[in-house]
Deep mutational scan, measured.
Amino acid sequence: MTEYKLVVVGAGGVGKSALTIQLIQNHFVDEYDPTIEDSYRKQVVIDGETCLLDILDTAGQEEYSAMRDQYMRTGEGFLCVFAINNTKSFEDIHHYREQIKRVKDSEDVPMVLVGNKCDLPSRTVDTKQAQDLARSYGIPFIETSAKTRQGVDDAFYTLVREIRKHKEKMSKDGKKKKKKSKTKCVIM
């Protein structure tokens, strides 16, 4: 069974824990209790493949930012979460993405942009803004509501699919490099 290491990042209060708990335990946590770091595991079937999701729910508070490099190193894919009623959390996505790329030393890291709290009427981040940002990053965008469960499975499952595509691409690139290195030079 394939294991996928997913990391949920975003500013404090955007609903990272609520999304994760909704996926794992099928219930909505409405009281806000700032996370330092929590880890969850769940076995699911995605596109006919049974897999184990190892999900790291991270601290959004700035005082825990020193811990970010460590979990970013171990993560295979990242859910970059903002709240649709919090423009600052949307603007912060850029910083999370840049930090992930720096730590992973790669421009090509599996990510999904997630606009959470889409059940709320007080939207300050337009869907088109988020779609445009995701398009500019070359990553999928999904709106979710941890409260109603809308888009929750889709967000995590899409990230797994992005990781699969990335692994497939990397193995193809690896095979191309191996083929090239088999060419021999004969000096007579």
Results as ranks from 00 to 15, higher is better:
Glu3Trp: 02
Glu3Tyr: 03
Glu3Gly: 06
Tyr4Gln: 04
Tyr4Asn: 08
Lys5Tyr: 01
Lys5Thr: 07
Leu6Arg: 01
Val8Pro: 02
Gly10Lys: 14
Gly10Pro: 07
Gly13Cys: 04
Gly13His: 11
Gly13Asp: 07
Gly13Val: 02
Val14Lys: 15
Gly15Ser: 02
Ser17Trp: 00
Ala18Thr: 14
Ala18Gly: 08
Leu19Thr: 14
Leu19Cys: 11
Thr20Asp: 09
Ile21Leu: 15
Leu23Ser: 13
Leu23Trp: 06
Leu23Phe: 09
Leu23Ile: 10
Ile24Leu: 09
Gln25Glu: 02
Asp30Phe: 06
Asp30Met: 09
Glu31Thr: 11
Glu31Phe: 04
Tyr32Trp: 01
Pro34Tyr: 14
Ile36Arg: 00
Asp38His: 00
Asp38Asn: 00
Ser39Arg: 01
Arg41Asn: 00
Gln43Tyr: 09
Val44Cys: 10
Val45Ile: 03
Val45Met: 11
Val45Ala: 10
Asp47Arg: 04
Gly48Ser: 05
Glu49Met: 10
Glu49Gln: 10
Glu49Trp: 05
Thr50Lys: 08
Leu52Pro: 01
Leu53Ile: 09
Asp54Thr: 02
Ile55His: 12
Asp57Pro: 00
Thr58Glu: 03
Thr58Val: 11
Thr58Leu: 03
Ala59Met: 07
Gly60His: 15
Gln61Ala: 02
Glu62Arg: 02
Glu62Thr: 05
Glu62Ile: 04
Glu63Gly: 03
Glu63Cys: 02
Tyr64Arg: 05
Tyr64Leu: 04
Tyr64Val: 04
Ala66Trp: 05
Ala66Leu: 12
Met67Trp: 03
Met67Asn: 04
Met67Thr: 03
Arg68Ile: 02
Arg68Thr: 03
Arg68Lys: 05
Asp69His: 10
Gln70Asn: 09
Met72His: 04
Met72Tyr: 13
Arg73Ala: 13
Glu76Ser: 15
Glu76Phe: 14
Phe78Trp: 05
Val81Thr: 09
Val81Ile: 14
Ala83Lys: 13
Ile84Thr: 14
Asn85Asp: 08
Ser89Leu: 03
Ser89Arg: 06
Phe90Ile: 14
His95Asp: 13
His95Arg: 12
Tyr96Ser: 04
Gln99Ala: 12
Arg102Gly: 07
Arg102Ala: 13
Arg102Tyr: 04
Arg102Glu: 11
Lys104Asn: 15
Asp105Ile: 12
Asp105Leu: 11
Ser106Ala: 11
Ser106Met: 13
Val109Pro: 04
Val109Tyr: 07
Pro110Lys: 02
Pro110Leu: 03
Pro110Glu: 03
Pro110Val: 03
Leu113Gln: 05
Val114Glu: 01
Val114Gly: 00
Gly115Glu: 03
Asn116Ile: 12
Cys118Ser: 12
Asp119Lys: 05
Asp119Val: 11
Leu120Phe: 14
Leu120Gln: 07
Pro121Val: 11
Ser122Asn: 13
Ser122Ala: 10
Arg123His: 11
Thr124Glu: 13
Asp126Cys: 08
Thr127Tyr: 09
Lys128Val: 05
Lys128Leu: 05
Lys128Thr: 07
Lys128Pro: 06
Ala130Thr: 06
Ala130Phe: 11
Gln131His: 07
Asp132Gly: 07
Leu133Cys: 04
Ala134Phe: 02
Tyr137Cys: 07
Gly138Trp: 02
Ile139Gly: 13
Pro140Thr: 04
Phe141Leu: 05
Ile142Val: 12
Ser145Pro: 03
Ser145Thr: 13
Gly151Trp: 10
Val152Gly: 07
Val152Thr: 07
Val152His: 07
Asp153Tyr: 08
Asp154Gly: 07
Ala155Leu: 14
Phe156Thr: 13
Tyr157Gly: 12
Thr158Ile: 14
Arg161Ser: 14
Glu162Phe: 04
Glu162Ala: 06
Arg164Pro: 15
Lys165Thr: 13
Lys165Gln: 05
Glu168Asp: 06
Glu168Leu: 06
Lys169Asp: 08
Lys169Thr: 13
Lys169Glu: 08
Lys169Cys: 09
Met170Asp: 14
Lys172Gly: 08
Lys172Tyr: 11
Lys172Trp: 15
Asp173Ser: 12
Lys175Ala: 04
Lys175Val: 05
Lys177Leu: 05
Lys177Met: 12
Lys180Gly: 08
Ser181Val: 13
Thr183Leu: 08
Lys184Gly: 10
Lys184Cys: 09
Cys185Glu: 13
Cys185Ser: 12
Val186His: 13
Val186Ser: 12
Ile187Val: 08
Ile187Trp: 07
Met188Asn: 14
